[in-house]
Simulated assay, not measured.
Amino acid sequence: MVLAVGNWRQSAAAALADLVPTYTRTSAYGLPAAIEAGLRALVKQKPPRLASHDEWHATVADAIRLASEGWATTALSMGWTEHDVFGIGPHGSNEWLSLAVWVAGRSIVAMDDHRAFTADDDVYYLERWGRPNTTFVAPVMLWEIGR
Rank of each mutant, 00 (worst) to 15 (best):
A4G: 14
V43N: 04
W143I: 02
A104S: 15
Q10C: 11
A119W: 00
R128S: 10
R49W: 04
A12I: 11
T74F: 08
R9I: 06
E95V: 02
G79Y: 03
E82Y: 04
S68N: 13
F117E: 09
I108S: 08
A33Q: 15
G30C: 00
A119R: 05
T59L: 02
I145W: 09
L39V: 01
E127T: 13
F136T: 06
T73R: 10
A41C: 07
P47L: 03
S68H: 11
A104V: 02
Q10K: 08
M111L: 15
A51S: 08
M141N: 13
T24V: 08
I145K: 01
A4L: 11
W71A: 05
W71E: 03
N94E: 11
L16I: 01
L3H: 12
A116E: 06
R128T: 12
F86M: 00
V43R: 12
F86V: 00
L3F: 12
T24M: 09
V140Y: 11
L39N: 05
F117H: 13
A119N: 03
G130Y: 10
S77M: 01
V5R: 15
T73K: 05
A41L: 09
T134P: 05
V101M: 05
E144S: 13
R25S: 15
R131V: 11
L66A: 01
W56R: 04
P90L: 00
W80K: 02
V85M: 06
I108K: 01
A33V: 07
S98F: 05
H57I: 03
R40L: 12
L3W: 04
M141K: 14
M141P: 06
L76R: 00
I64M: 12
T118K: 02
L31S: 04
L42I: 02
T81N: 04
Y29N: 13
R9T: 06
Q45D: 03
A110E: 07
E55H: 08
R40M: 00
M111A: 04
V103A: 07
T22Q: 09
R128M: 08
E55T: 10
D112I: 04
A34P: 01
V43H: 07
D84H: 03
T135C: 00
T74P: 08
V109K: 05
L16A: 15
M141F: 13
N94K: 13
G70P: 10
V20T: 15
E36D: 09
T74R: 15
H91W: 11
R65C: 09
S52H: 12
W8P: 07
E144Q: 15
P32L: 06
A75T: 09
G146C: 09
T135R: 08
D18L: 14
R9A: 12
A72M: 01
T73L: 02
Y29W: 14
L19S: 15
L31W: 05
D112A: 01
P139Y: 01
V20C: 10
Q10P: 01
S107E: 12
L99F: 11
W8I: 13
P139D: 06
